[in-house]
């Protein structure tokens, strides 16, 4: 067990962890888990992911700044698009031609 902190872990995280003075060598994780979690991120930001996987992701985020940033920005991306109003509405002339084509021109006025 105590072998864990013997070797430095070669991970993109290592630099960030050193700079902020945190040691992450106790539970070294490789890129494998980041890649593995990637599949669940969509469900995670939608809040539809299994409880156990959520716990796994949140634990990983605490150890991996890279994934933390990916998840935060993914969530923000979805939010920005959700807030975007669906545009454009059907243009008036397109609607008019549609009604004519469907023999509904007598209903064209009321919208």
């Amino acid at each position: 067990m105590s072998d864990h902190d013997r070797e430095p872990v070669d991970h993109p995280l290592a630099g960030a962890a050193q700079a902020s003075g945190t040691r992450v060598a106790i539970h070294p994780h490789d890129h494998q888990s980041c890649r593995h979690l990637l599949k669940s991120l969509s469900d995670y930001v939608d809040g539809t992911l299994d409880e156990s996987l959520c716990v796994e992701i949140e634990k990983h985020m605490g150890e991996c700044e890279r994934c933390q940033i990916v998840i935060d920005t993914l969530r923000k991306t979805v939010e920005l698009y959700r807030d975007m109003a669906p545009a454009p509405p059907v243009p008036e002339d397109v609607r008019a031609r549609l009604f004519v084509r469907l023999d509904l021109d007598d209903f064209l006025v009321g919208k």
Partner: peptide, 12 residues
């Protein structure tokens, strides 16, 4: 395989 995230910038 999913495309690995390349842009790691916290712009939130």
């Amino acid at each position: 395989g999913e495309q690995e995230p390349l842009q790691i910038v916290d712009w939130c």
